[in-house]
Amino acid sequence: MLNTATEKTPLVEMSHIHKRFGGLHAVEDVSVSLNAGEVVGVLGHNGAGKSCLMRILSGAMKPNEGKILINGQEAVIDTPQDARLNGIETIYQTLALANHLDAAANLFLGRELKTRFGNLDDARMFSEAENALRQLNPNFKNLRDAVSNLSGGQRQVIAIARAIYFQAKVLIMDEPTAALGPSETAMVADLTLRLKAEGIGIFLISHDMHDVFELCDRVMVMNKGRNVGTFAIKDVNKDDVLSLIIKGALPDDWTPRGQA
């Protein structure tokens, strides 16, 4: 396995992660790190194990083996709550929204704001949600509608707002632009760069090569559950990455592009 990235004290370090479903090795001995203020692209075919790996980091799934270090400290991430306590927020591909609840209820789901008497503080949640959503999309309307009545783009904005509202240190974005139109995709790209500038570490799962090369500092490619290469983005081009995704190996004549 080649690794041309420079070593620092990483924000997140996943080492030797294994995840098996019966006989199937969904994730096999994968190690990956993420630094503060860095965007790492996680690439691969459908079923290559990238979503699985990210679900392990976000606490949605437990690994069979391996450990996760946060700022060099071993962290136990058994549940989504554990991940959040460690500053890890996730934008799921499925968005993970409760369709019958409105935007504010979804944004604060599991972390509801309460009044002194322990009642739900709906007024404050609504105004906070309004602010958070308007920052991402000034045209956001229908805040009081159940999210099942909202458009795909609006739902995506809620999922993104939920991840960044709580001051994440690590953000996992699983296909964040899959449901979006061009202008919204550009908005997400801007947002990604802004969050990166704020020192947040981001794992970006994407199929869109354009996004990957525009936003990522490094890419990690998975094939059949294995990490087949982690590269600084300047060392590879699109053909190299596609070769890794499809073949699981670099083109035979490859040399680090950045040094050429």
Binding site: P80, T94, A98, N106
Partner: peptide, 9 residues
């Protein structure tokens, strides 16, 4: 959405 609820903590 039970899964969403779980993922939301």
């Amino acid at each position: 959405n039970e899964e969403a609820a779980r993922l939301s903590g």
